[in-house]
Amino acid sequence: MKIKLLAATLAMVGSSAFAQEPPTQPAQLPQIPYLQESNNQRIPVDDGYTPPASNVQDDELFNQVDEIRRQQEQYQAALAAREQYAAEQIANSPGAKFLEQARKMYKPSMAFDIEPKQSIVIPVGQGLLNTLSTNFTELKVKTSDARSVIETEGGHLYISIPDSNPVGLVIHEAGVKSSQVSITLIPIDAPPVIADITVSMDDGMKRESVAYQKKMKEEEAINQAKAERVPYSDKHTKRIIDLLTPVAQGDFPRGFTLSGDIPEDYRTPCRMAIPHKAAQRLLGGSEIIDVIGVKNTTDSTYMVREEMCLNDDVIAVALFKKSYLAPGEEMELYILRDKLYYENVQRKARRPRVTWGDE
């Protein structure tokens, strides 16, 4: 006993047409009930189903079954031809040819010379750490890709692409947007790539780069200075803070008055290579506070240190607000002096006393 499924489609497309255009998927015919053959008798197999009376002979019905099977085979052949045609269309597309050309370019080590605003294509190892080395001092990179792992160090870029999708990068020298170039990375099943990329930069671009790096170093030095804390070792620390804090706030400490009488020897009291001068003097009962104005007239960052202004009569030196000065910046520093220091020195006896000692 055997069971045969009677199913077919209304229309078929000849295989001769597949080379010119994709086959049209045919509509599906209604299903025909199962036919169970036993002693040349038609016996229904579905529960509760009785086939209608028919004058169709068994031989004719069997021929119909064979015809439907032939149509099914043609339909499967049409589907296979359709898939083959789609695959050929993809293989012959501009995108596929572009990827194939990129694969042929692959070398473990490559070098590129490129002008600003131009583009290059580089095949790289998929899922591996690839290296792009440039002639930039500090490389900046932009991309819309969120899947890849990207790191930069100086003029080098390290990238690992986890899938087969191309990744577009725009790189340039930090602070020099006119040096931008576009790079398309094509991941392939190959070892990682080390690529040297030399971007042509004119003298103007180089000057921009130098100026930007100089500015970044100055900002870094200033930020570092802001993070520093000045240690206090004098035993009268609280007294010093109480006196100098109001001065830094633009006020007078209690018991002090403003004086414009500053001795000539105290006009430039510090040992530093940039201009400075005592602009104000605050007089107290036993202390003097000199307010010194400092300006960096050099073309580089200058570090001001407290020890530059120390002297015999100096109790403490304080800097406001920073110790690193960028070119053109100004600051105040405060020198707290012992008002009676030199008077006390003069009162001291200079002749040693005569003693009998041991005779």
Results as ranks from 00 to 15, higher is better:
Phe18Glu: 07
Pro108Gln: 15
Val149Cys: 01
Ile120Gly: 01
Gln126Val: 00
Asp59Cys: 05
Thr137Tyr: 02
Pro30Lys: 03
Pro30Met: 05
Lys142Trp: 14
Glu37Tyr: 11
Gln89Lys: 14
Pro33Asn: 14
Phe98Met: 15
Leu61Phe: 02
Asp58Arg: 01
Gln74Thr: 15
Arg103Val: 04
Glu37Cys: 07
Ser119Thr: 11
Ala86Gly: 06
Ile114Lys: 09
Ala96His: 15
Gln71Gly: 00
Thr137Arg: 13
Gln71Val: 01
Ala27Ile: 15
Ser54Trp: 02
Tyr49Lys: 05
Leu128Lys: 08
Ser38Tyr: 07
Ser109His: 02
Arg70Met: 12
Ala86Cys: 07
Lys107Thr: 05
Gln31Tyr: 03
Glu73Ile: 08
Arg70Ala: 14
Ile122His: 07
Thr143Phe: 03
Val121Arg: 05
Asp59Val: 07
Pro108Phe: 00
Val56Glu: 10
Asn39Tyr: 11
Ala78His: 03
Gly154Glu: 09
Gln25Cys: 11
Val65Cys: 09
Gln101Asn: 10
Pro44Glu: 00
Leu35Asp: 07
Gln76Asp: 04
Thr134Ser: 09
Ala81Arg: 08
Glu83Phe: 09
Glu153Asn: 09
Leu99Glu: 02
Ala27Glu: 01
Glu21Leu: 09
Arg103Ile: 11
Gly95Pro: 12
Gly155Cys: 06
Leu79Asp: 04
Gln118Leu: 04
Pro116Lys: 00
Ala80Ile: 12
Ile150Lys: 10
Ala102Ser: 02
Glu151Cys: 04
Gln74Asp: 11
Tyr49Ala: 10
Thr152Pro: 04
Tyr85Thr: 14
Ile150Asp: 02
Glu100Pro: 01
Glu67Gln: 13
Met110Pro: 00
Ala111Asn: 02
Asp59Asn: 06
Asn55Tyr: 03
Asp113Tyr: 04
Ala102Gly: 00
Gly125Asn: 00
Ile122Asn: 07
Asn63Asp: 15
Ile43His: 00
Met105Ser: 14
Ser148Leu: 02
Val45Thr: 14
Asn55Cys: 01
Asp66Val: 12
Tyr85Gln: 13
Pro94Ile: 05
Ile43Phe: 10
Ala27Phe: 04
Ala53Arg: 13
Ala102Leu: 04
